[in-house]
Amino acid sequence: MRCEKGRYAQLFGETFRLSACTFGGGFVIIPLMRKRFVEELNWIEEQEMMDLTAIAQSSPGAIAVNASILVGYHVGGLPGALLTVLGTVLPPLIIISVISFFYTAFRDNPIVNMAMTGMLAGVAAVICDVVVTMLKGIFKQRRLLPVIVLLAAFIAVRFLGVNIILVILACGLTGAADTLYRERAGRERT
């Protein structure tokens, strides 16, 4: 693995900072990680990040923790994974520990509420930016099947409330069937 001491420190620092910014539930860290590790640092390829997301989604536990284990494992092996888990867990651990001593005051403080409401809108903007970039990637393939899978999965998750594990299984099977079909079509042509 391409790893030296500086890379380990950076790995920890990056996940620590990202984790400190994941307002609005754990899933938010995925687009943030994608933006940082794929677009800015080039540590992970676009396709690989999507695969890691699917694995993080279908494993038990907090998605943010799962995703950071996968990113850490990819960049720095087992020590990398342990560092990224630590980086992801420490910010909430510290913040909640501090808050728990005066949590009613924190909950009712108007300034805190204003900052949090503003940051929530900021996080929503970051996620929408990532979604637009990802959608462009799907449409750039110029194939119909990914677009159909995208729409079907979106309707299933958003409007029908289908279990995410079932959606992932169905899409995986579609991918497998597509591969078999294309191999057979390719063999008949030759």
Binding site: F27, Q47, M50, D51, T53, A54, Q57, V131, M134, L135, G137, I138, P146, V147, V149, L150, L151, A153, F154, V157, R158, I164, V167, I168, C171, G172, L173, T174, G175, A176, D178, T179
Partner: peptide, 11 residues
């Protein structure tokens, strides 16, 4: 994995 990617974008 290619089949999963659009689903990830949808989620």
């Amino acid at each position: 994995l290619a089949g999963l990617r659009p689903a990830v974008v949808a989620m």
